[in-house]
Simulated scan of single mutants.
Amino acid sequence: MDLVIHDCLGGCTTQERDAFYASRPGPRPSTLPRHDSATRYRVDVTSGGGRTAYLVRYPRTWWRPAYWEGEQKSEKRPLDYFLWLRATAAEGRGDLAEKIMNDVFRQRPADGA
């Protein structure tokens, strides 16, 4: 299993996204089926009968910095991430790749409350 998370320290740009995903092995994210506005995934059957699951997400969390630019702030600020997952399971254990992918998908970022 490989899991990589990149935080953008605010809002992510298209250039950051493209550079992050270009550095990952496997299929380009744009070739994966879209699940929702922030998620794409696919499960491939490998030549030996196992499975490889790919998941890419663009989650946003909200946080309240105690101080920002020297002043105390109370409003929430966005914090965006790029997430890339590749989980591979051997023949006879192929369902494990999907289970890992689903577990990562179900995780939700904090709302910053």
Rank of each mutant, 00 (worst) to 15 (best):
F20V: 01
H35Y: 07
P25A: 10
K73F: 09
V4A: 13
P27W: 01
M101R: 03
A110I: 07
G70A: 13
V43T: 10
S23A: 15
L83P: 02
S47A: 15
Y67H: 06
S47W: 04
T39M: 07
C12E: 02
W84A: 02
L79N: 07
P109T: 07
A110W: 11
M101C: 04
G11T: 15
V4S: 11
A66T: 12
N102H: 12
R60V: 13
V4K: 10
Y67N: 05
M1K: 10
G112L: 01
C8L: 06
A97S: 09
D7R: 13
H6D: 08
A19G: 09
A87L: 06
Y58I: 00
G48K: 07
L85T: 01
G11E: 15
R93Y: 09
P25N: 06
L32F: 05
G26Y: 01
R40T: 04
N102K: 15
T31G: 00
T61V: 03
D18T: 14
T46K: 05
T52K: 07
R57G: 06
D36W: 04
A89G: 03
G92F: 08
V56D: 02
V104F: 06
D95Q: 14
L96M: 11
P59N: 03
P59H: 04
A89C: 09
V43F: 07
A53L: 03
P109W: 02
D36H: 00
T14S: 15
L32S: 02
A113D: 14
A53W: 00
T88P: 04
V4E: 10
R34S: 10
S37E: 10
L83G: 04
A53I: 06
S30R: 12
R40L: 07
T61S: 15
G50R: 03
R42H: 09
L85E: 01
Y21E: 02
W68K: 13
P33H: 08
D103N: 11
M101T: 05
Q72A: 13
L96S: 06
